[in-house]
Amino acid sequence: MYRSELISRLSDGFIVTLQLLGWSMLIATVLGTLLAAMRVSPIAPLRAVGVSYVNIFRNTPLVVLFLIAVVGLPELGLLTGSFFWRAVTALSLYTAAFVCEVLRSGINTVQAGQAEAARAIGLTFGQTLRLVVLPQAFRNVIPPLASVYIALTKNTSVASAFGILDLTYQLSDLIEDFPGSLYWNFFSIAACYILIVAVISGAAALFERRVGVSR
């Protein structure tokens, strides 16, 4: 009885946590890359937008962003239907600021000569960034980027207090229904998070060996 309940609830929660993580990771990476491009662009207003974004979203506690997304947005008539997308909004806006900073530091490690050479053969700023600078920048920041994604994995647990049935929600539920098996409840939930984090670290290690820059 307990074992089958545990397994079915764990798999339910695991899928929801993976969905949250997947969408937030995707949106945060795209948005973070755009922001990083803004922060190194030659156009001053764009740089200002990038800097302000990072200052606001990196310095706001995640729970406050969740409150804004879950309580504030519906008041404005946005995302009234879905708690899932409100959670994804909060998580991706927050994480994008970190992705942006990691990427920017990666861009700064690419030698200026690379960009100069690209401009010299007639590539535009956008082409230079896309074809020459960013591919090298990404390779330089695989370890810190993995750290950002691991932090995101753990941050998804905040959503359990905001209407999402993720792994952490299932933990509270299991504690309530099976108080006699506390250790199993805690260890099995922990194991699920460790599994996700292990996959991210493993993937990062693999990429680093394949494409990382060795100097």
């Binding site: 879950v70 519906p74 009234t80 359990s160 207090a161 209407g163 049935l165 929600y169």
Partner: peptide, 19 residues
């Protein structure tokens, strides 16, 4: 199911039409 931390949070979501 839509779980929240406290009953008053639930009430907010009921009043704004999310649940």
């Amino acid at each position: 199911p839509v779980p929240f931390d406290t009953y008053s949070d639930c009430l907010t979501q009921l009043q704004n039409g999310s649940v």
